[in-house]
Amino acid sequence: MSRLRRDWSAPAVLYLVLAVVGLVGTWTFNITAIVEKRDFLGEWFGSGPSVNSLGVDLAIVAVAAIVLMVAEARRLRMRGIVLYVVLVPLVALAFAFPLFLCARERHLTRQRSVER
């Protein structure tokens, strides 16, 4: 079996699918907001308590995810962590975090195959 196939475990594929769904899901609404010239951040933190709660919730989860990604990347000696961290605010946490998990899973799979 080729190395490429060995790197793609079932969890890695699942994380990649989640990343694509996160990208399409978030950017469908982002593009709509851009086309309609909406105040994206103003609406995120200014449309009432329930939306504010979701904004704060997502912001805290994003910070926690970044801390986890950096810690895991250092622990596992993964390269390219800056890319995933930058993708969080520039694209979406719903894309960047599962994409990182996919890369992490592939990295662990490669490590396991080297150890055998």
Rank of each mutant, 00 (worst) to 15 (best):
I81S: 12
S50I: 15
A65C: 05
V24G: 09
A64N: 09
V85T: 15
L83R: 00
S9I: 07
V67Q: 01
M69N: 07
P89F: 12
L58H: 11
G55T: 05
M78L: 03
L108S: 11
R79T: 00
G42A: 14
A65V: 04
A96R: 13
K37W: 08
G80S: 07
R5H: 06
V61T: 05
P89E: 04
A59G: 08
W8I: 06
G22K: 03
G46D: 13
F29Y: 14
C102D: 13
A103N: 12
A73Y: 11
P49A: 07
R38L: 12
S53W: 08
P11D: 01
T26P: 03
L4P: 00
A62W: 03
D39R: 10
H107T: 14
T26L: 12
A92K: 00
L23Y: 12
V35Q: 08
R5K: 05
A33Q: 03
R79I: 13
T28R: 08
F97L: 14
D39F: 02
V91K: 13
T26C: 14
I60T: 11
R116L: 14
S50M: 15
V114P: 01
R3M: 13
A65L: 03
V20E: 02
G80C: 03
R79P: 09
V63A: 01
V51T: 10
M1G: 14
A10F: 15
A103G: 11
A94C: 13
S113Y: 09
D39G: 14
L14H: 02
A12Q: 00
E43Y: 04
Q111Y: 10
D57I: 08
V85N: 06
A73D: 11
I66C: 12
R74Q: 13
A71M: 07
L16K: 00
V67H: 00
A64E: 11
P89Y: 14
F29I: 06
V67S: 01
L99T: 06
T28L: 00
G80F: 07
S53N: 07
N52Y: 10
W44P: 08
G80E: 04
G22I: 11
R75T: 15
G48C: 07
F40L: 15
E43F: 05
V61L: 13
A92Y: 02
I81V: 14
H107A: 08
G22P: 03
E43P: 07
S50G: 02
S53K: 06
G22W: 03
H107R: 15
W8G: 03
L41S: 09
A65M: 12
S53D: 00
V13M: 13
G25C: 09
E105D: 09
F97R: 00
G55C: 05
Y84T: 15
R79Y: 09
S53L: 08
R112N: 13
M78I: 02
I31G: 14
I31F: 06
S53P: 01
A65D: 11
